[in-house]
Design a binder for these strands. Sequence first.
DNA 1: TCGATATTTAGATAAATATCTAAATATATT
DNA 2: AATATATTTAGATATTTATCTAAATATCGA
Lengths: 89, 89
Amino acid sequence: MVSATFKALADPTRRKILRLLRERDMTAGEIAEQFNITKPSISHHLNILKQSRLVLDERQGQYIYYSLNMTVFQEIMGWFSEILERKER
Amino acid sequence: MVSATFKALADPTRRKILRLLRERDMTAGEIAEQFNITKPSISHHLNILKQSRLVLDERQGQYIYYSLNMTVFQEIMGWFSEILERKER
DNA sequence: TCGATATTTAGATAAATATCTAAATATATT
DNA sequence: AATATATTTAGATATTTATCTAAATATCGA
């Protein structure tokens, strides 16, 4: 769970995708345009982000829109808080 | 920078090391005792944590003590905050 | 239904990485 | 100085992963 999330965050392409999505929801194609890598590769990254629940997907006709899933970000923030809290004592 | 940190955090063994160190500073050997992997492997993980500045090391005689470096944790928390802030608008 | 567009899936490959054993380095003790 | 202990470095190997091309699937519009 947390492991999948951190692995997903470990790749710079995937982190850039997340930063794009914080501006607005985007289709897989719109996301792919922002990179110099092929659409299948982006699709692979989106799948990893999806499986770690960092992003959500919703089909609208031909398009699949991707958006950030805030819930998981907060979980991870929680993981960090634990470390920090304990240490400040 | 942030890339090295996330890569370091992506491994469960390294995350367990960090959780151990939030309790108290420990030597490389003490850390290794907590795992079923060899000392050289732990040394490798400690090196990755060190290079990403998540931990600090300090030799005391024969021993090398490892401790958490809070600074970097806060940097990463900052990365998450950026994402969350922007999205909440 | 057919052709066009959007996206994913499958399969291959090269690079990265976690692990091991053996050897090297650093420090302490006698 | 010689030995023991703590840790790292070097080199090898198996697994994981990011990427590509080609093919498959899904939806839309004529």
